[in-house]
Design a protein around this nucleic acid. Structure first.
Length: 424
RNA sequence: GGAGGUGUCGCAUAGUGGCCUAGUGCGCCCGCCUGCUAAGCGGGUUGAGGGUUAUCCCCUCUCGCGGGUUCAAAUCCCGCCACCUCCGCCA
């Protein structure tokens, strides 16, 4: 949620930001119009309410005829106050509804445009040249079968399309990745968390996932729960309605959780294998800090993600996501995209967003600072989304004999194994 | 799932319709006093919104949340939520 005072003082900034996202600037003016009506309604209510309170005190002291006369007026006022209160509430709700639709103001550095308008910040490592090595790489589905690591057929039998089992070394690989990620984050000062995967509507809405992303969210209507698509949701809502002391900042949390996504609108896209699935496990970093510190923190998040990918010995590039591809809450987003041999291109493995004070305003997360109580900034970043990491490792580290080399850093987490061998 | 209890300004508490502009203690902040510290004394200390915006000032809301009764609600009534105790069920 954007500070309405920013919209009042510099509406053109917000209109411009909307255009850079490829969205209509008219929403800004609709919000300002509703703000005007809201303030008029508040003033009207408060004037009546003040009169009611003043007269109410006189009633308490008055006697006889004087009291009777006052009661005539106060009874009238009682009705007027109630009407004015209803009008104020309605104006407030109309205003809030419009304001909540407005996405975060994209950072000036974020490229304008949509999904394909990203800029590449850097390349790290070179894609492996299988042709030079003299063999054709297998995809992760075939490798997963040979290793006894991934069972997609039975995933579909039990749960349907886009579900899978990790079996044997596949399951071992998940636990190894998760433990390694947790160790790295813990070493960087993060507090380890295991978070609820079912949340109530305010948590989902406050994090910004009931906007454009609502179609992608699983809901349990009977109990009014949502299944989270990322532990960003329970981590952001963790400090909702709290005022944090500045000397406890930054607060860094790392969570392991399952993630559930409908993947609506992706029909026919990435249908093979486990690249895009309805459920997966993920280790996610999350930071609460000041708005001023958030930009440096965002660089740190990216640094931790790069460190992680390097330990997995993967070639990747970093992109600066375009404004139109930021989602509702983010002001800026960096994706790390790893080279996937059988895709013949880069695919997103991790992503880190600076949501500035956008989520904090929705979730009412504030800090007590010398110059007042102010909303904090929130940032999130993937360390490991398990299935995609498994795909990247299997495909990039496969050998001509069908085995898969285990990256050195990961070996201690896989009972010292240096390679995964085919079982058939 | 059932029964009972509890929810007040950081913490602990007072408050059974108008004297609540929510009192008191603790904690915290500022100042005074004081060789230092403690004690003592004085003041301040929820958050949000509106008017005005030159820091002041004025007003409204905020006693778990939402309704209702009333001229007037922390206080009375209804619903919901959270927590505690016990029972049931379950991993």
């Amino acid at each position: 949620m954007i500070d309405v005072r920013v919209l009042r003082s510099d509406p053109e900034l917000a209109r411009q930001a909307q255009r850079r996202r490829g969205e209509s600037p008219d929403l800004v003016d609709e919000i300002l119009d509703r703000d005007e009506k809201r303030r008029t309604a508040i003033t009207a209510f408060e004037r009546l309410r003040a009169e009611q309170r003043t007269l109410g005190k006189q009633v308490a002291r008055a006697q006889g005829d004087e009291k009777a006369e006052l009661l005539v007026r106060t009874k009238e006022l009682s009705t007027l106050v109630k009407e004015a209160e209803v009008a104020q509430t309605e104006a407030e709700q109309a205003f809030q509804a419009a304001l909540k639709r407005l996405p975060n103001i994209a950072a000036p550095e974020a490229p304008a445009g949509g999904e394909d308008d990203y800029t590449v910040i850097e390349h790290v490592g070179a894609p492996r040249d299988f042709a030079a090595e003299g063999f054709e790489p297998l995809d992760h589905v075939e490798l997963g079968k040979r290793l006894g690591a991934i069972d997609i057929e039975r995933g579909a039998k039990v749960s349907g399309a886009r579900f899978y089992y990790l079996t044997g070394v596949g399951a071992d690989l998940e636990l190894a990745l998760v433990n390694m990620a947790m160790d790295q984050a813990r070493g960087a000062g993060f507090t380890t968390m295991i978070t609820p995967a079912l949340v109530k509507p305010p948590a989902m809405d406050g994090t910004g996932f009931l906007g454009q992303a609502a179609a992608d969210v699983y809901r349990l209507p009977a109990e009014d729960f949502y299944l989270v698509g990322t532990s960003e949701v329970p981590l952001a809502a963790y400090h909702a309605d709290e005022i944090l002391e500045p000397d406890t900042l930054p607060r860094r949390y790392v969570a392991f959780s399952p993630c559930y996504r409908k993947e609506a609108g992706s029909y026919g896209k990435d249908t093979r294998g486990i690249w895009r699935v309805h459920w997966f496990d993920k280790v996610e970093m999350f930071t609460y800090t000041t708005l001023e510190q958030s930009y440096a923190e965002h660089e740190k998040m990216l640094g931790w993600e790069k460190q992680w990918l390097s330990k997995l010995e993967l070639a990747y590039r970093v992109i600066d996501t375009a404004a139109g591809d930021l989602g509702l809450s983010a002001a800026r987003k960096f994706d790390c995209e790893v080279w996937i041999p059988t895709r013949g291109g880069y695919g997103e493995l991790t992503s880190t967003s600076n949501c500035t004070d956008f989520q904090s305003r929705r979730l009412n997360i504030r800090g007590r600072f010398p110059d007042g109580v102010k909303p904090l900034a929130t940032l999130n970043g993937t360390l490991v989304a398990v299935p995609r990491a498994v795909v990247a490792i299997l495909e990039n580290h496969q050998q001509a004999d069908g085995s898969v080399r285990v990256p050195t850093a990961l070996q201690p987490y896989l009972q010292g194994r240096t390679s995964l061998e085919p079982v058939q």
